[in-house]
């Protein structure tokens, strides 16, 4: 995991990550994160140590996607828990 100040290019890219609900507890609400080119969302989830059993919704640039999607520079990812019941 790198901070937003780290240099990009040369195999690195910047993605914007937003965490919703319980995911933000002890982490952050939103942050720019530097990843290696070709990083999949599942790798990002692993690095953030999100509890997988709660992972319900992944939005990539506002659209639902799967954890296997490969990220591109400047992508915006939202990671949300499940929503159920009432």
């Amino acid at each position: 995991m790198s901070s937003a100040q780290a240099p990009c290019g040369r195999g690195l890219m910047l993605v914007h990550v937003k965490l919703v609900g319980l995911f933000k507890t002890g982490r952050f609400v939103q942050q720019d994160i530097i990843c290696r080119d070709g990083t999949k969302i599942e790798e990002l989830i692993e690095r953030l140590e999100l509890p997988l059993q709660h992972l319900g919704i992944i939005l990539l640039n506002g659209l639902h996607t799967s954890s296997e999607t490969v990220l591109k520079p400047k992508d915006s990812v939202v990671l949300m828990p499940f929503v159920d019941g009432g």
Partner: peptide, 9 residues
């Protein structure tokens, strides 16, 4: 955290 958590999502 129960169904209340639906608010955030």
């Amino acid at each position: 955290g129960g169904t209340w958590a639906a608010y955030d999502v």
